[in-house]
């Protein structure tokens, strides 16, 4: 199915997530790269050696949850926009996501947006906590959002309410 729709199945997604205990300890990268392609900027970008591809540039990246500090450097570097940071340490009821978002206008801190799943379907509300767009991110802004914990494995994107498309 994934090869027909580009929407990863639940099992594929779960495989890329670290255990919930790790998520609850603090921020960690989820690298949703499922296909062997000649690409490795995630490995090059990570200052902690937490993403390994190895000598063959076509290998699928592996993230070591023990080494990953959740710094987020890799998020804006991935040309596939396939990396996000999840953090369950902030509260028992919510999780924070940091996702790349290459659309203008950028959302405002404090804004409530519509949370979307991997098929772009609205599933929840999300609160914008932070918007980062420093020169080092090279025009791939990263948005931090707070989402109800039950959407941990479904939330993947958002849409501003005023926008019609999508």
């Amino acid at each position: 199915m994934f090869e027909q729709t580009a929407v990863a199945t639940r099992e594929m997604v779960l495989e890329k997530f670290p255990p919930i205990e790790r998520i609850d300890k603090g921020p960690v990268a989820v690298v949703e790269c499922y296909q062997k392609i000649p690409c490795n900027p995630c490995q090059t970008a990570c200052p902690f050696g937490a993403i390994q591809i190895g000598a063959d540039i076509n290998e699928i990246p592996r993230r070591d949850e023990a080494l990953c500090t959740g710094c987020g450097v890799c998020v804006a570097k991935c040309p596939g926009l396939s990396i996000m940071i999840v953090d369950g340490s902030k509260s028992a009821g919510t999780v924070e996501f940091r996702i790349p978002y290459e659309f203008l206008p950028l959302p405002q801190v404090g804004e409530r947006v519509l949370g979307l799943d991997r098929a772009g379907q609205p599933i929840c509300r999300a609160l914008v906590k932070k918007v980062m767009n420093p020169p080092a991110f090279d025009r791939t802004p990263v948005v931090t959002l707070e989402v109800e914990r039950k959407y941990l494995y479904d939330f993947r994107n958002f849409r501003r309410e005023a926008e019609a498309h999508g």
Binding site: F2, Q4, A6, V7, G80, D117, A119, G120, N157, G166
Partner: peptide, 21 residues
Amino acid sequence: APRIGAYLVHASKLARMGVPI
């Protein structure tokens, strides 16, 4: 074609914006 020819990371960007492929 019966499957997406593009790199799937690129195609997933569209999928999660609700564009049917």
